[in-house]
Amino acid sequence: MAKAKFDDQARAGLSLIAPPFLYALVILAAPLLTILAYSFLTDGYLEIIRDFTLDNYTQVLTDPIVRTVMLRSLVVAAIVTLATVVMAFPVAYYVSFCVRPEKKAMWLFLITIPFWTSYLIRVFLWKVILGYNGVINSSLTGLGIIDEPLTFILYNTNAIVLTLAHAYAPFAILPIFVALEKIDRSLLEAGRDLGESRLMTFWRVTLPLAMPGVIAAVLIVFIPTIGDYVTPEVIGGGKIPMIANLIQVQMLALDNRPLGSALAVTAMAIVAVVSLVFLFLNRRFLRVRQ
């Protein structure tokens, strides 16, 4: 009787999740499978299935330009992730531990304000701020600090990192805040009662318990950052391409969809491996703590 009831509940659950699951499968899996199929072709037509080849992947793995761009993308994404999480943690900590409970909702509301505008608009705003006749140069010139506008604050890797860190900061603040909110405050009081300083209590209690949120923030920032196309194009002036820009050139400018697809699949595989390695190294922080 119990087994029959369990089977009925299982069928009911499957009937509930089946429609969204199938929808997600079609929307997400179909494009990925299409890109994967393109990556094995010799031309851009899926109808010609007899010409499957591994030459595209061979070119991707042996081309020094691709290796340079991929390495640059990984390094920039890592720096952006580190800078974003380092900046986001104090903000999340302040909102969680220092703001009164009735005002936390207002702070979270303020943190989400950047989402009110388009990502593209925010990128162009940074170009206005960092530009030759932008806000920074105009202010420094007006104050007499410099005689001529600075030319090294735009169209470089530092400007790309700054723009991406600002754009993805809310994505890092929110998961860290959620993790901090789940910490039992009595554990912190117990640490201080045992003679630990505030710094050591933070290091031994708060930070380890907040690590699931930090790990979530790292993945949320790292994965989309490595595939960002707009910022390197606008803030980098097209002089510092990342892997997404290289894919765009192959797909659209050169109309080489097989090679562009191979680049995309390779980038996804590298991101997946890096993410899994990071999760493996931090697996002890992901365990549910009772």
Results as ranks from 00 to 15, higher is better:
Arg257Trp: 12
Ala18Gly: 06
Pro170Gln: 06
Leu194Glu: 02
Met242Asp: 10
Val80Tyr: 15
Gln250His: 00
Ala262Ser: 00
Leu28Ala: 04
Asn245His: 12
Val60Lys: 00
Val86Trp: 08
Leu32Gln: 06
Glu102Met: 03
Pro170Arg: 05
Thr163Val: 15
Ile136Glu: 12
Tyr132Arg: 10
Ala179Trp: 07
Leu199Phe: 15
Gly144Asn: 01
Leu252Thr: 09
Pro175Trp: 06
Asp255Lys: 07
Ala12Gln: 09
Leu28Arg: 01
Leu276Glu: 04
Met87Val: 15
Val273Thr: 02
Thr266Met: 05
Ser261Phe: 00
Glu148Cys: 06
Leu16Trp: 10
Asn256Ser: 04
Ile160Ala: 14
Phe222Lys: 07
Cys98Leu: 09
Ala30Ser: 08
Val75Phe: 15
Val178His: 09
Gln9Thr: 03
Ser261Met: 00
Val99Ser: 02
Leu276Gly: 04
Lys103Met: 06
Ser39Tyr: 01
Ile215Ser: 03
Phe109Asn: 09
Phe115Met: 10
Leu174Glu: 05
Ala159Leu: 12
Ala264Gly: 02
Ile35Glu: 00
Ala92Arg: 05
Ile48Cys: 01
Asn158Tyr: 15
Leu110Tyr: 11
Ile176His: 05
Thr34Gln: 04
Pro19Asp: 06
Ala78Ser: 12
Asp63Arg: 00
Pro90His: 09
Asp184Val: 13
Met200Lys: 08
Tyr229Asp: 12
Thr62Lys: 02
Gly213Cys: 11
Pro208Val: 06
Val99Cys: 01
Leu209Ile: 14
Leu41Arg: 14
Lys127Met: 15
Thr58Met: 07
Gly237Gln: 13
Ile270Trp: 01
Arg192Cys: 03
Ala272Val: 03
Val178Glu: 11
Phe278Lys: 03
Leu263Cys: 04
Thr81Ser: 15
Val221Cys: 11
Ala264Tyr: 02
Met87Pro: 13
Arg67Pro: 07
Arg72Gln: 10
Arg67Phe: 11
Leu82Thr: 12
Leu194Lys: 05
Tyr45Leu: 12
Ala24Pro: 01
Ser73Asn: 08
Leu41Trp: 02
Leu174Trp: 07
Gly238Ile: 13
Ile49Thr: 04
Met200Ala: 05
Pro31Val: 01
Phe115Ile: 09
Ala267Arg: 02
Val274Gly: 05
Ala190Cys: 07
Leu174Pro: 15
Thr163Cys: 13
Pro175His: 04
Pro208Glu: 08
Leu140His: 03
Thr266Leu: 04
Val135Met: 02
Ile247Gly: 03
Val218Gln: 12
Leu219Lys: 10
Ala172Phe: 06
Arg287Ile: 07
Leu154Gly: 10
Ser261Asn: 00
Gly142Tyr: 08
Thr225Ile: 15
